[in-house]
Amino acid sequence: MVLSVTEKLYLHESLVSNPPARPDGRSADQFRPIEIFTDFLPTSNGSSKIVASDGTECIVSAKCKVVDHTLEEDLIEVDVDIAGHRDDSPLVQGTLSVLNRVLLSQIDRGSLRLTKKYSFKLYIDVLVLSSYSHPLTLISFAIYSALNSTLLPTLISSDDDLDVAELPTFHDYDLTKLTIKVPVLFTVAVCGKNVIVDPASSESDVANNGILVTWYDGKVTAPVRTLGLNEDYVSGITPQSLADGLKLIEDIAPKVVKALDS
């Protein structure tokens, strides 16, 4: 929805006031309700669908393939498709680069290892059906729940296959759950001195800046980036806001991850 200059000004004023007054009545550290469904695609090893209350919807599929990890550089491949945006648009490319960076640098190659020679390679395909606010947080939640519901075939051949020229063999129907620690991403909007989590589209339109925070294995890790959420209100970011933003995430991330796990 396109807001008028006056509406934007009003919204901005209310967000910078102390405490921030958000248009939907949330507190600064409150998320919008989301719904997650997992494991609905039988041809994928893991799948999830996430729907936010504003209608943002995202579907993630995880498929695996056995590869020789001495030859294969990356064991995770991410592909992002956002409906209505071309593959070479800045939004898709930006999202893809962040996800690649986060997943490749954080996820431990060892957790995908199968034998001494072979590993699973994970193909993560993201399809964003509709997005109204910045979709990265939702995508990362969807990837988190997809990977945590991923089932892989159980290995029955020997683990030590360096000298045998045979592909690993699997049990006919037994599946093992993938145990992997997955990073989640949070977007924080900076409005004046306030920091608010999970900005809605109207809030993104008037935020002074956005911070992207990665949460992995119980702590904030790299990359932490700034996100330009709009063109009219963008200003520099102060060290204080950055610290506030990180503090906010440190407070709420454990609760979010717990909710995603349940």
């Binding site: 599929s61 498929k63 498709d81 593959d87 193909y123």
Partner: peptide
């Protein structure tokens, strides 16, 4: 029509678009 790359048993290497 957007045929996703994961739509078949074997993931397709290229986009169908």
């Amino acid at each position: 029509i957007n045929i996703t790359r994961f739509s078949k048993m074997e993931r397709s290497k290229t986009s169908h678009r």
